[in-house]
Amino acid sequence: MSDERRLDVLRAIVQDYVSTSEPVGSKALLERHHLGVSAATVRNDMAALEDEGLIAAPHTSAGRIPTDAGYRLFVDKLSQIKPLTRAERSAIETFLSQSVDLDDVVTRTVRLLSSLTGQVAVMQYPSLNAATVRHVELVSLAADRLMLVVILSTGQVEQRILELGSPTHLDDEAAVAQLRSRVNELSVGRRRAEAAVALVAAVAELEAPPGDAQGQSRAAVLRAVAGVLAEQREDRVVLAGTANLARSSNDFPLTLSPVLQALEEHVVLLRLLASMDGESRESVAVRIGAENPISDLASTSVVTASYTAGGVAGLGVLGPTRMNYPSTMAAVRAVARYVTEILNQ
Rank of each mutant, 00 (worst) to 15 (best):
E185S: 03
E185P: 00
V157W: 09
T94V: 13
A39H: 15
H34R: 12
L239Y: 09
D51V: 06
E205T: 14
A69T: 00
V237N: 00
E291H: 07
R182E: 11
T242K: 05
Q80N: 13
V110T: 03
L297P: 04
N324V: 01
L179E: 07
A202F: 10
P58D: 10
Y125A: 02
L229W: 08
L152E: 05
Q119P: 00
A208Y: 09
A62T: 12
A143R: 11
R108F: 00
S295G: 05
S140H: 13
G63F: 03
E291W: 03
S275W: 07
R72L: 00
I288G: 03
V312L: 15
Y307R: 15
E158K: 14
L186W: 10
L229G: 00
L272E: 06
V9T: 15
A202H: 14
L7I: 00
V286G: 03
E173Y: 11
V105W: 07
V268Y: 02
A262D: 09
I92T: 03
V332H: 04
R64I: 10
E234H: 14
D68L: 03
A196Q: 11
T109V: 02
S99R: 12
D251Q: 07
R5Y: 14
V157C: 05
L128P: 02
V105E: 11
G211V: 10
A195T: 09
L315F: 13
R322V: 01
Q216V: 07
D16K: 10
P83G: 09
T117D: 05
A208R: 10
V188A: 07
L270T: 06
Q345P: 08
L263S: 01
E341P: 08
Y325R: 11
S299Y: 04
Y17A: 00
L164Y: 04
L162E: 05
Q159N: 11
T300V: 10
R337K: 13
V150S: 10
A285Y: 06
L254T: 06
E265H: 14
P253C: 01
P23A: 07
S181W: 13
V105K: 03
D235C: 12
R322I: 06
E52L: 09
R160Q: 07
G289Y: 05
R180E: 14
V106A: 09
P126K: 05
D171K: 01
V18R: 07
Y307F: 15
E31S: 12
V303I: 15
S306E: 14
S280H: 13
L35M: 14
E137W: 10
S301H: 04
L116G: 00
Q345R: 14
I81G: 02
Y325W: 04
N292Y: 04
R6F: 04
G310S: 05
I342L: 15
A91D: 08
V284P: 03
L49M: 04
A246L: 07
Y338E: 15
L239M: 08
L138E: 06
E194N: 13
E158N: 11
V122H: 08
S283I: 11
L343A: 12
G314C: 12
V24N: 06
G63K: 00
S140A: 10
E52R: 06
S99V: 02
G211E: 15
L179S: 04
V120S: 04
D144Y: 00
A174R: 15
R182N: 01
T308W: 15
A40S: 15
V221F: 08
H59E: 14
F252L: 03
T94S: 11
P210E: 14
L54D: 03
N44G: 14
S61C: 06
D296T: 08
S306W: 15
T321H: 07
A331D: 06
I13R: 02
L272Y: 06
A331E: 02
